[in-house]
Nucleic acid binder design. Structure first.
Lengths: 244, 244
DNA sequence: AATAATACGCCATTTAATGGCATGTTTCTT
DNA sequence: AAGAAACATGCCATTAAATGGCGTATTATT
């Protein structure tokens, strides 16, 4: 069963893939399967080890090759958007009051951040601290809750991530319709309701917006810089106080 | 500024890394920087594209090479344990009632699962559905809550993931100390309290355990198989009913 | 129209990969 | 204790791939 000819790069990938299927494999078996000599497999293994794949070999009769159990996972390619969503999820999970199964999340987050382009790193590094997870929403809030449209969440999230101003059409508590120009600086979740907090340019003040009361959201090209956290203390406290 | 000689593999990595630093780069610049000819760079770019890296090129004066913004993220290598913790985090985030910024988590989860060895996939695929996120714990529960030791959570989590029986020393509601032999089949979070549900071999019945009342947990080598979900309906309802 | 960039085909040359063989080492079986 | 089955590594002739140089085509800007 010889596979069609593979370039060296492809063969390395193939070997790693075969080793992940923790069937008992010998170097000889690999050689036959990939249609190359034992010597070549041997060199490929050395190369894989050089490149950080922890191939383990049991010598002697009955031996063979394997990857350690810990190494179940190969390389994961994520798009920018997927990585960001992952970061948001991690932020949520990390802020749960009871992190027992997720002791190493910080390490994962570091790896994720490290894989971003340097120009994005700065923006992304502080992201986690600007997402707050509160408690559950009050019954009154729950009653009036409605899910968000994808365009709105897209615009808000992008504005939040890339620090760009967003133009909102908002229905406020009293039911009045207003247009705002907002820097989305913080996100807060009182399950299931998300809030955006930021500098409101029309009002020249920190304001918070219940996301499901936003009727339209349009991303602009105007960048903004982060304001000091303490400016938001009051707004955060306000939202949290909505709870019964 | 010529880097020390690189093998082709290394050069491909280097090019991808340089492109991630979205500095304006031309093929000629890369050639000088890496000490190879323009023709070689050109071929390397073709190779990268073959391997799925979406290198974009602007032709003409002022042009150059770049990766699209979306592509911030290269390849992420996670250990088995990290991947599992990531899956758990995803499960938690996905079960939040308001998933607006995390619409694509399912795609990420699929990629993650796909990167596992086939033999592990089965176990891991069903993992998410066996983690339940409830609401917040009641005041009464909160009062008696204490955080878990790392050894206990390690044993419980491993037992849950690898489907192996766990021996518990448990202080029950009445304060009695008992020893149990449990198959940890479900996890349930009423923030911040985790519960393990599973088949109790001493009692021959489904039982649930508040994790912070577990005094000791020892992993055994005895494997178990999953029981049908409906057997746990009652126990799940019970725990959820603890809330006020 | 000139220029600066990528894209790609061709070919001689250089370098790296390969196979074969020999040798050493570890571990299990008999 | 001997033998067999596995990995590890060195050496060398052979083969295949990568490289550089050149030419040409294409695209976008000035």
């Amino acid at each position: 069963m010889r596979s069609s000819d593979l370039s060296r790069l492809e063969r390395l990938d193939a070997i790693a893939a075969l080793l992940k299927d923790d069937a008992a494999l010998t170097a000889n078996g690999l050689a036959e399967r990939l249609g190359v000599s034992l010597r070549t497999i041997s060199r490929d293994l050395a190369l894989l080890r050089d490149r950080g794949v922890p191939v383990e070999a049991d010598r002697g009769r009955g031996g063979g090759l394997r990857l350690p159990r810990q190494w179940g996972v190969g390389r994961l390619s994520l798009t920018y958007r997927e990585a960001v969503e992952l970061l948001v999820s991690l932020a949520i999970a990390e802020q749960l009051p009871s992190p027992w199964l997720i002791a190493n999340l910080a390490a994962i987050r570091r790896k994720l951040v490290a894989s971003f382009a340097p120009s994005l790193k700065d923006k992304i590094a502080g992201l986690r601290s600007r997402i707050l997870i509160g408690g559950s929403a009050s019954a009154a809030v729950l009653e009036s809750f409605s899910p968000l449209g994808p365009e709105i969440s897209e615009a808000l999230l992008t504005g939040f991530l890339e620090q760009r101003r967003v133009r909102l059409f908002y229905r406020d508590v009293a039911g009045r319709l207003t247009e705002r120009e907002v820097e989305p600086q913080w996100l807060l979740l009182n399950t299931p309701v998300w809030y955006v907090m930021g500098w409101d340019h029309k009002r020249q003040a920190v304001r918070s917006f219940r996301c499901d009361r936003i009727l339209e959201a349009h991303l602009t090209d105007v960048p903004f810089t982060l304001r000091p956290a303490r400016e938001f203390d009051e707004a955060i406290a306000d939202i949290r106080a909505i709870r019964p």
